[in-house]
Design a protein around this nucleic acid. Structure first.
Length: 288
DNA sequence: ACTCAGGTATTAC
DNA sequence: GTAATACCTGAG
């Protein structure tokens, strides 16, 4: 496959650091020139800000313009979203200013499921390492600019790994969960294509929760960061718990509120855009 | 040696 | 139902 290039004018809501370091993805890495290179589907792409242009370059299975338009969620009006959310309150407004270039990627559903099962009680460097080793072992190679990259393995490819194989890759106690979930998806006991047709986020979540290793937080991340794009979910992790605690409950540090209380407040306050609000707050607080 | 990291599953009141 | 507890791993 040949290299393709696509350039577009830089827009306000597009910042590489904000997009790739906000915790939604694990396979994008910064280069010495501040550009980022990553693998998604059967594509290897480098994204670089060059003056007032965004330059997408790499090996792309289909038309690069269409591919990045979909993947980087370029058709959604983030300026309007930011305007609407900024009206809600001052802290949210500040967090939006801080993460002004965030966009939610449309990532492959299967890859997102496995990645976030691995993320449980884990840290980012280790999560990234595990996913790289998995891809190298079970994915397909793509060569570009004298380097070999590896696609994230499809369910069929990953199903070749035994629980023991997964443990060797460093999955730890998540090995069994990934193994079982892979089987359920491969045999279509959980049909991802059907799930993508489903409209109600409540039903989608119900189905995701049947997968081993998928609890409420991981389910929300999958719904927000994959092509499911349920913008109304509000993943509650340790950082968001902290931020909400401080901003709205004014309780002493590290007081544990129930997930339900936080979700309820988020629904009431942020409504159908709760997921975006979560990202701005998360990115703001975690960096602070 | 010991704590911690984008939680979940299991077991105990 | 709601509250503790165990759980791989490796970096600090």
């Amino acid at each position: 496959m040949n290299e393709q290039v696509y350039k577009m004018n830089l827009i306000e809501t597009f910042n590489l650091v904000h997009i790739f370091e906000c915790g939604q993805c694990f396979r994008w890495n910064i280069e010495s020139d501040k550009s980022y290179t990553g693998v998604f589907k059967n594509n290897v792409l480098n994204v670089k800000i060059d003056g007032n242009q965004i330059v997408f370059k790499g090996i792309c299975e289909n038309d690069i313009k269409e591919t990045v338009t979909e993947y980087f969620d370029l058709k959604r009006d983030y300026e309007k979203i930011k305007r609407d959310l900024s009206k809600i309150d001052e802290p949210l407004k500040n967090s939006i200013k801080y993460g002004s270039g965030i966009r939610l990627l449309n990532q492959d559903l299967w890859e997102t499921i496995i990645s976030f099962i691995i993320s449980a009680n884990n840290n980012i460097p280790r999560i990234k390492g595990i996913i790289e080793r998995m891809s190298k072992q079970y994915g397909k190679p793509i060569n570009w600019q004298n380097k070999t990259y590896y696609t994230f393995p499809e369910a069929k490819e990953l199903s070749k790994a035994s629980v023991e194989d997964l443990r060797k890759l460093g999955l730890g106690f998540r090995d069994q969960r990934v193994y079982e979930t892979t089987k359920l998806i491969l045999t279509k006991q959980v049909d991802l294509n059907e799930l993508l047709k489903q409209k109600e986020s409540k039903k989608i979540k119900e189905t995701l929760l049947t997968l081993p290793g998928v609890g409420p937080k991981v389910a929300d991340c999958i719904m927000l960061f994959s092509t499911l794009k349920c913008l109304d979910v509000f993943p509650v992790d340790v950082w968001v718990r902290r931020v909400m605690n401080e901003l709205y409950f004014k309780l002493p540090e590290e007081t544990s509120l129930k997930r339900e209380q936080i979700e309820k407040l988020a629904r009431e306050k942020y409504g159908s855009l709760a997921g975006l609000a979560q990202q701005y707050l998360f990115y703001w607080k975690r960096d602070a």
